[in-house]
């Protein structure tokens, strides 16, 4: 008998026969008055930076002023993020991406491979900046997964703030392996 067959047979024999219905999660669908305000407070509280911009030109200007070195992006105005070998991103100072949406309750942005172009792009640069439309903020993770629905991505990630660790005596340090900062530019359209 293969290990697979052996495991499945043991599970079938031992799993409880009680029906155990799945719960209804509709009760968690609360609306929030000002999702942007909540998103801003939460993300700032976990080390991210939130900045409202008038238009994308203003965003580009801000980033060029505040970051030196190699900047790559899937958006216009910067060196296009290369699709080739991810190791070629090792010297990237800042990567600028467009978030698909964000979540107010935890300050996370959602992005999938189509908007990332290169999976490593969100992790390997020294700094990360994300463009987010103000109308693209949902209240909770339940809303988030409803919005994702049955989307057919290869890879998707929620990112909430800069990479961090508190493994040394619970002292919080920003910039563990991934980006040291995360800037979310919020476009009020």
């Amino acid at each position: 008998m293969s290990s697979r067959a052996e495991i499945l047979a043991a599970v079938r024999k031992n799993q409880p026969s009680s029906p155990a219905p799945l719960p209804d999660t509709q009760k968690f669908w609360h609306e929030v008055d000002d999702v942007y305000a909540q998103f801003n407070i939460i993300l700032s509280g976990i080390g991210g930076k939130v900045l409202e911009i008038k238009n994308w030109e203003a965003g580009q200007e801000y980033l060029k002023e505040h970051f030196n070195g190699r900047i790559v992006s899937t958006l216009e105005g910067f060196e296009p993020l290369p699709e080739s070998d991810p190791h070629a991103l090792a010297d990237v100072e800042l990567c600028v991406l467009q978030a698909q949406f964000a979540v107010a309750e935890n300050g996370a942005i959602w992005i999938t491979n189509s908007a990332l172009r290169q999976r490593a792009a969100a992790f390997i640069p020294q700094h990360l900046a994300v463009l987010l439309k103000k109308s693209d903020i949902v209240p909770t993770m339940h809303h988030a997964y409803a919005r994702i629905g049955s989307a057919d991505y290869d890879f998707g990630v929620f990112i909430a703030g800069p990479s961090k660790t508190a493994d040394i005596e619970q002292s919080l340090v920003l910039g563990a392996h991934g980006p040291r900062t995360m800037t979310v530019l919020v476009l009020n359209e």
Partner: peptide, 17 residues
């Protein structure tokens, strides 16, 4: 786990690159 609202990264791996 740590009192954070969510971990920094919640990565969904679906297909190999």
């Amino acid at each position: 786990a740590t009192g954070q609202p969510i971990t920094t990264y919640s990565s969904h791996f679906r297909r190999p690159a």
